[in-house]
Amino acid sequence: MTLVKQLSVMVENRVGRLAEVTGTIGEAGANILGFSIAEGENFGIVRFMLDRTDDAYNALKANGHTVSCSDVIALPIEDNPGGLHRVAARCAQLGVNIVYAYAFRKSDGAVLVLKVDDSARSVRMLKADGFNPLDVEELV
């Protein structure tokens, strides 16, 4: 099964708090490949796709940040008009329920990060349908 680890950090809605998080990640020597922010009333959840997830996790914990690690699917998508639509439409047909998603570009194309309800089943369905979920080495 091809799932990748993503870090989610609880970040107080306060000027400078996000910079404290990204500073810690940088000092840990981890490179941010992609990220997204979900905003709430008094805090946001910032989700990071990283090359050195464990190092960043430990550094964030050590600096008193509230962080959790979860499994997501990273799908390569075509970096041209309709690229995202083709994946989204296919997921709908396959019955893969997307909880949230975000995308980022890397040197050789775009990546769609998906959080789905049932990761194992979704990966199986996507693979059977010809998709190639990426592992962390392929992301870097």
Partner: peptide, 8 residues
């Protein structure tokens, strides 16, 4: 009820 970041 509003949840807050630990330490905030």
């Amino acid at each position: 009820v509003q949840l807050m970041e630990p330490g905030s």
